[in-house]
Design a protein around this nucleic acid. Structure first.
Length: 109
DNA sequence: GCCTTGACGGTAA
DNA sequence: CTTACCGCCAAGG
């Protein structure tokens, strides 16, 4: 595999439970590339090459739907998140902390 | 091969 | 509070 990193990113994203979200930085940290959150974002950009990657569950550290512009339609991300029980206001997840799912905390035992 | 951009994050001013 | 800058890494021009 040429880009194992990307594969790992997709794997973690796929592990995000329904109704939960995480951040690019959290994924990056889990993979050991703490300072390379941007690369995670780039990986997500390439996530369109797959079909099992719930990119809508990945937001930035503020719970802001920064990647919504990259979806087929801008409100697709919001719509999906709301479908999973979350509330979005101004492209931001309300009570983000309650929905936050940290792979390090949940997976790394 | 160099420079810019980007779905980020943190710190400084 | 807002703005700016730096680090990090991959892709595209």
């Amino acid at each position: 595999m040429k880009s194992q990193f990307f594969q790992d990113v997709y794997e973690v994203v796929k592990l995000i439970p329904k109704g939960k979200v995480t951040s690019y930085g959290a994924i990056a940290r889990y993979l050991g590339t703490t300072k390379s959150a941007r690369v995670v974002g780039w990986a997500m950009n390439n996530s369109h090459t797959l079909n099992n990657v719930p990119a809508h569950r990945v937001v930035n550290r503020d719970g802001l739907l920064t990647g919504k512009n990259h979806f087929p339609y801008p409100n697709a991300m919001k719509n999906l998140l709301e479908s999973e029980g979350m509330k979005i206001q101004k492209d931001k997840i309300i009570n983000f902390n309650s929905y936050y799912w940290d792979p390090i905390k949940e997976l790394e035992l």
